[in-house]
């Protein structure tokens, strides 16, 4: 089904990647830590190495959580757009298969939120 209209109905999407000044939108989500109410969004250069997401992007948002200092980053399980992934920190977002509006989820085994409540 499509939109019924009185004439031609074809408009460009405001969210297409060329509107983001060279960046692409990437969403991050820390599983079982729902005191962060939703995944968070960032405009990031597609050539940025994935390691920079871990060192420069994630701490600014997720740092305040008491579980954060206890994360063992080598044990973290990643999912990119719903599929299990092992992103290479040296490679770029693009080369790790992270595209415009990709969702990157990370699960921290043994850390399931404040008192294990998924908060």
């Amino acid at each position: 089904m499509s939109t019924k209209s009185i004439g031609e109905y074809n408009f460009p999407a405001p969210d297409r990647v060329e509107n983001f000044h060279g960046n692409q939108v990437v969403y991050l989500h820390w599983s079982k830590h729902l005191s962060f109410c939703a995944a968070t969004a960032y405009p990031l250069p597609p050539d940025m190495p994935f390691g920079a997401v871990i060192s420069n992007v994630i701490p600014g948002t997720y740092g305040p959580h008491p579980d954060f200092p206890r994360i063992d980053w080598s044990a973290v399980e990643w999912r990119i757009d719903g599929k299990p992934a092992k992103p290479d920190p040296e490679k770029s977002l693009k080369d790790n298969g992270i595209h415009h509006k990709s969702l990157v989820e990370f699960r921290t085994p043994g850390l399931d939120g404040y008192r294990g409540s998924a908060s």
Binding site: Y27, L28, H29, L34, S35, F36, C37, A38, A39, T40, A41, Y42, G60, T61, Y62, P64, P66, L103, G113, Y114, R115, S117, A118, S119
Partner: peptide, 29 residues
């Protein structure tokens, strides 16, 4: 009690430490 009280407990603890929780990342809509 199971899912939401702990969230408020956590934030209350943070508030007491003078670190009232504001999410610094913008949300996915």
């Amino acid at each position: 009690d199971k899912y939401y009280r702990p969230r408020f407990d956590l934030w209350r603890e943070m508030e007491k430490e003078g670190k009232r929780f504001y999410n610094m990342g913008l949300p996915q809509l």
